[in-house]
Simulated scan of single mutants.
Amino acid sequence: MDGGLALAAVLLLAACEGRQSALDPGAANARDILVTTWVLFVGGTVIFVGVMALAVWAVVASPERFPGARSWVIGGGIVFPVVTLTVLQVHEFGLARRLVTLAADPALTVEVTGHMWWWDVRYREPGGGPLRSANEIVIPAGRPVEFRVDSADVIHSFWMPSLAGKIDMIPGRVNRLSIVAERPGVYRGQCAEYCGAQHALMAFDVIVMEPERFDAWLADQRRPAPDPAEPELARGRDAFFAFGCQSCHAVRGTPAVSRIGPDLTHVGGRLSIGAGSFATNVGSLAGWIASAQHLKPENRMPSFDVMDGETLRAMAAWLESLK
């Protein structure tokens, strides 16, 4: 029994950490929410235990040992809840005000549009043009970042548990959220509003970098896709156009400029594909191209299962080389 309890304790503690844990905050927003959560949880527990203890005492104690019944009703049933709830309400109003206060001069604006079922990401620096990406967000640590979120189809919910609270993504409306990430690392985000069959496979990574590293990353992302360095990669690029992939996808530096689907200019440098569904490598890219509808049914990309194996591997290798 002791061994089982120890194992359960280890598993519970392990669940409190990780890149998608609201109990392991990496920004002030998430920490404020966590503090309020603990206040409500601990306070509610203490109140529950106290009320149950009084109830037991009232049942088992003799009447002469339980004097002042009216005082208990007035104090415990009226004064105590009014005072407690008022204090909690004032605290929560203050928290809500802090969470919705926007940075006066954000160093970076990230626009995120939710689609069924992927994320369109655009970076805007003060005085700079937009830079488009997908399904992965990179931000600098220690700098104020403003998120502007909306939806292209149904209501989604943008949630980075370790960095901030949830914010709705509503068609035709832009909602805004400011955060300052404090700790470099990789955090996981998730759509928190049921949005269809593949809602569970609509995730994204948030990569928090040191400011200098972020600046170098952003400059590298602005570069167009390089020319293929090997014959196999050239064949993969030609297959990309031969099969009409440019009808939905953009690859900067090539004639592919469509914005229907995710921007693939640097897809090989992302941690995952399919909105967090699979790690990025040649095998997963080839599998996604050939069997997108099998791997993630009802998504907007058809399965290209008509390619021969050599062509499929070449296209996947070219996409993986785009870093």
Rank of each mutant, 00 (worst) to 15 (best):
F66N: 10
W57K: 04
M307W: 15
D2M: 14
L85I: 12
V49C: 08
P161R: 07
G253T: 13
A286F: 07
G165C: 11
A181W: 03
E64Y: 06
V145Q: 01
L163V: 14
T265P: 02
N135P: 04
I207G: 04
Q89S: 13
S291A: 13
C245T: 02
G43H: 12
L95T: 05
E212H: 14
E92W: 15
A216V: 09
G253E: 10
W288Y: 12
F241Y: 03
I167C: 00
E111S: 09
G114W: 06
I289V: 14
V206E: 09
W217A: 05
G4A: 11
W119L: 05
S133K: 08
M315V: 12
R148S: 15
L163C: 15
R223P: 03
E230T: 15
A290H: 11
Q246K: 06
A15F: 05
G43M: 12
G269T: 03
R173K: 10
F240Q: 05
I167S: 00
R19M: 07
A96W: 12
F304C: 07
F241D: 00
V282W: 08
L5F: 12
I179Q: 03
A290G: 09
A239Y: 03
M169H: 10
G165E: 12
V35P: 10
K296Y: 05
E320M: 14
W118G: 00
R124S: 11
G128V: 04
A104V: 09
V282H: 05
G44N: 08
P106S: 09
V73Q: 10
A103G: 00
N175W: 09
G68R: 08
C16Q: 15
L88K: 03
T86P: 01
V49W: 07
R31D: 07
L13S: 12
E146S: 09
E298L: 14
L95A: 06
D215Q: 13
L218K: 15
V87S: 02
A229Y: 13
I33E: 11
A69G: 10
L99S: 02
F41N: 00
F147Q: 06
R223T: 11
F93R: 14
R97L: 11
A250H: 07
T254V: 01
L108H: 02
L312N: 05
C191H: 08
I137A: 02
R213L: 10
L177Y: 14
V206T: 14
D263M: 13
R148V: 13
V90D: 01
H115Q: 04
N29R: 15
I155G: 07
R222I: 01
L131P: 06
E210N: 12
R31W: 15
R313L: 11
W117Q: 04
I179H: 01
G309T: 11
I74A: 04
E125P: 00
A225C: 00
E298P: 03
P81L: 10
I273Q: 01
V251L: 04
R252D: 15
A292R: 04
P231M: 04
S291G: 06
F93E: 10
A96I: 05
R132F: 09
G4W: 06
V73K: 09
